[in-house]
Write a protein that binds this DNA or RNA. Structure first.
Length: 761
RNA sequence: GGGCCCUUAGCUCAGUUGGUUAGAGCACUGCGUUUACACCGCAGGUGUCGUCGGUUCGAGUCCGGCAGGGCCCA
């Protein structure tokens, strides 16, 4: 008995690229059909009574539901009485008494001494008077209830296992509408049994349960009152009524759920795949190893990719499901409810001797599992396919390892004998601010639109980019504010760089001039100043680190190192070279990038420009809008199509053996202590320092000296003495007594500090 | 019941093969308005690295037990 399909099908207009994905889905189905991987079977099927469609194992979830154990007496049949010499009833406990008419056996654990002598004998079902055997199976739990249970067709998935493995008869009572069938199942033959069933026919599961309990109570076979319990019940993940198991004809794809060799092969495919992070592999293996049936792909829904087959209609008007008619691959996509089966004409639809179209559609994952084939042009672009398949990377969430990832592996394994991609980058959940999983029912879902409006796209993306693969990310607006600050900083620092180099002056006229100016600034003079070379050397190292991190799927580390250096670039380097780069230009004065300037200014300008060009490309994946905006000010095309920074070119400009980060850090530290003098004196950073002694750890002296001029300019220092701190262990060793007394003890010579600061009035 | 991940500053998290005094941002406090930036800058304090034990010259890091949190599967 097939469930009814829709009487007419709504056929939406489908754009070409979608019809091509439909064709791919149908072609893969037909290939599978010809190889025997796709097949149809009349079998117990997980069924959602609300949506009236079959559901696959991957779409199930357990939910705790209240229920009650009903203790019911089964009378012994003649063979049991004879064997035991007793008329004692057998008591079972069940949470689903309404399935009593579907009972086909009682089952206990083979080692359970209480029931061993009963195995092979029979009992009679109460109310319905059907003789059913007592059987043994290891899945029966001796410690649950009375240790013996009734097997019904079908109350749950364990019933299906018992039914299949013990080869029990089928006595279905549930229809696809969630009501008990009109006719009593085979086996109920006695007038009393048929009458009892008549009381239940057409009732919902809920009402049938109430009626059965009344009848059992009246018959005196309900032992005591039902005992309330909580137990896990299978639900369709999108449904709100428990799933039932209904016997229907459905289409399946072999996925290792019924075939050990295929299961092993798919586990082996999983071990070939590079999971990022690696522990996600366990989820895949658990899932594949735990499969209990093939992948059910047919759905009784309206919208979806049609299963591309027709069936001959027999003389009695019924479809001949055993001989499906298939289209040729070049006719795809087809809709069998509209298109005519090959070899027939339209007048022969649904008439004896004619054909009928399959009404079912495919599970959405039956198409999604083919995204690599769709994208790589498997069906219509062999050249592209050869060049791009298998793909490199599947990025996806951890919750769909069992669906999207696994089903893609299944399809690729069957069709191509390979993995669909080499790497799988698995992300975690986005949790609410209290680290709870977001769900509609809890009402803690945050949708992105408001966030994008409040913080900007770059800021939201920055927050998302801070989540490491495989790690859940708590939703954090604070992090978005930081992202926004970074994006603003990129805009402002870029404005400064393009202003101080003069590129902005001519780029405002035309982009060609901007490009010419950029080339001129970065190539017309060498980068000579040690601080500039250090900046570029540090940047080259960061490019290397970020590149390696991205190659290892550690995008957060790539961002982190770029971000850290960028703040140093803004807070220290820009401040240090600002004066030098301006080269005497007055505030507000437009700088001509082509005019001659001092070598120090040329060095700074080349460095600023090269650093900006590099930082923009490092940040482009995370701050796509801010970087693109700046790029448009002085570069052509899109930053997102620009090449990834090349550390070798940056390092070549920096020069061989240039001290990078350490020199930059030492200069930054020196700037910091100069600022501290003013901060502690509670005066403006603009205040002049008339004279100061800078005590520098021995190892850093040369680096600080190399940046001395820039330090004096940035710190507004008139006279500065740079002293090796290890030679100044005694206060006043340089001949001047400390004025404020704060350094009047032996200081740590490894810490940079100042002495004898004299601020201008 | 089987398995996986997590536990580090008030908060969010780094901490790479074990190796100086465990870091960052936020928040907090104070100061500052500068030739890119107030959606700003500078300076400052903040830790029993869940807990107990083990390995080691040395453990946030490796091993085991326990507790708490989260997840997958049955």
């Amino acid at each position: 008995m097939a469930p009814p399909g829709p009487e007419c099908r709504l056929v939406p207009h489908v754009p070409d690229h979608l019809s091509s994905s439909q064709a791919v889905a149908q072609q893969a189905f037909l290939r599978g059909l010809s190889r025997g991987e796709c097949y149809q079977a009349e079998a117990p099927t997980l069924w959602d009574v609300t949506f009236r469609t079959a559901v696959a194992q991957a779409e199930l979830e357990d939910r705790e539901r209240p229920g009650a154990y009903h203790r019911i007496a089964f009378e012994p049949a003649a063979d049991m009485e004879e064997k035991t010499g007793s008329y004692a009833s057998v008591y079972i406990e069940t949470t689903r008494p309404e399935l009593l008419p579907a009972c086909v056996a009682l089952v206990a654990h083979p080692d359970d001494e209480r029931y061993q002598h009963l195995f092979g004998t029979h009992v009679r079902t109460p109310l319905f008077g059907v003789e059913v055997p007592v059987v043994a199976h290891h899945l029966a739990s001796p410690d649950k209830g009375s240790g013996i249970a009734m097997i019904c067709t079908f109350g749950d998935v364990t019933d299906v296992t018992w039914w299949r493995e013990l080869r029990l008869p089928t006595r279905p009572v549930l229809g696809w509408d969630g009501r008990l069938l009109a006719e009593a199942p085979e086996g109920i033959t006695s007038p009393e049994g048929v009458a009892a069933y008549g009381e239940l026919a057409g009732l919902t599961v809920f009402s049938a349960q109430q009626r059965v309990v009344e009848m059992l109570r009246e018959a005196g076979v309900l032992d005591g009152e039902p005992k309330p319990t909580q137990h896990p019940v299978k639900f369709f993940e999108k449904g709100d009524k428990p799933l039932e198991i209904v016997t229907t004809r459905q289409w399946y794809i072999r996925n290792g759920g019924t075939d050990r060799a295929l299961n092993d092969a798919l586990v082996a495919r999983g071990s070939e795949l590079d999971f990022e992070p690696d522990f996600m592999r366990v989820r895949y293996e658990n899932w594949v190893r735990g499969l209990t049936g093939d992948w059910l792909i047919s759905r009784q829904r309206f919208f979806g990719v049609p299963i591309p087959v027709w069936y001959p209609v027999l003389a009695d008007g019924s479809p001949d499901y055993d001989h499906p008619i298939v289209p040729s691959e070049d006719a795809l996509p087809v809709d069998p409810s509209v298109d005519v089966a090959p070899g027939f004409d339209a007048s022969q639809r649904d008439v004896p001797g004619g054909f009928t179209g399959e009404k079912d559609i495919m599970d959405t994952w039956a198409t999604s599992s083919l995204t690599p084939q769709i994208v790589c042009g498997w069906r219509d672009n062999p050249g592209l396919f050869a060049a791009t398949f298998p793909m490199d990377l599947r990025p996806q969430g951890q919750d769909i390892i069992r669906t999207w990832l696994f089903s893609s592996v299944v399809r690729s394994h069957q069709e191509h004998g390979t993995l669909p991609w080499k790497h799988a980058a698995i992300s975690g959940w986005i949790l609410d601010p209290d680290r709870k999983k977001m769900s509609k029912s809890k009402g803690n879902v945050v949708t992105p639109m408001g966030l994008l409006e409040t913080h900007g796209s770059d800021a939201v993306r920055y927050w998302a980019a801070a989540a490491r693969l495989g790690t859940d990310a708590a939703f954090d607006e604070g992090q978005m504010k930081i992202g926004r600050r970074l994006a603003m900083k990129v805009l402002n620092a870029s404005k400064f760089v393009l202003g101080a180099t003069g590129i902005a002056t001519v780029a405002a006229e035309s982009l060609e001039e901007g490009l010419r100016a950029t080339a001129h600034v970065t190539t017309s003079a060498p980068v000579t100043e040690p601080l500039d070379r250090a900046m570029l050397a540090a940047l080259a190292d960061v490019v290397d680190t970020a590149t390696a991190a991205l190659s290892a799927y550690d995008h957060t580390r790539a961002l982190e190192v770029a971000e850290t250096l960028f703040w140093t670039f803004c807070d220290d380097y820009l401040e240090l070279v600002k004066t030098r780069a301006y080269d005497g230009a007055a505030p507000g004065e437009a700088i001509d990038p082509f005019a001659p300037c001092s070598p120090g200014a040329a060095s700074a300008r080349a460095t600023l420009t090269l650093a900006l060009h590099t930082f923009l490309r490092l940040f482009a994946p995370v701050l796509p809008f801010a970087t693109e905006e700046v790029w448009s000010w002085f570069q052509e095309g899109s930053v997102h199509r620009a090449s990834w920074p090349d550390s070798a070119r940056v390092r070549a400009v920096a020069g061989e053996d240039t001290p990078g980060a350490p020199l930059l850090a030492a200069a930054g530290e020196a700037l910091s202590v100069l600022r501290k003098v003013k901060s502690e004196a509670k005066v403006s950073q603009r205040t002049e320092i008339a004279s100061i002694d800078l005590l520098v750890p021995e190892a850093k002296v040369a680096w600080v000296r190399a940046a001395e001029a820039d330090l004096r300019a940035a710190g507004r220092v008139s006279a500065m003495q740079i002293v090796d701190a290890s030679l100044a262990l005694e206060p006043g060793v340089d001949g001047l007594a400390p004025e404020d007394g704060s350094n009047d003890e032996i200081a740590d010579p490894t810490v940079m500090r100042t002495e004898n600061a004299r601020l201008a009035e």
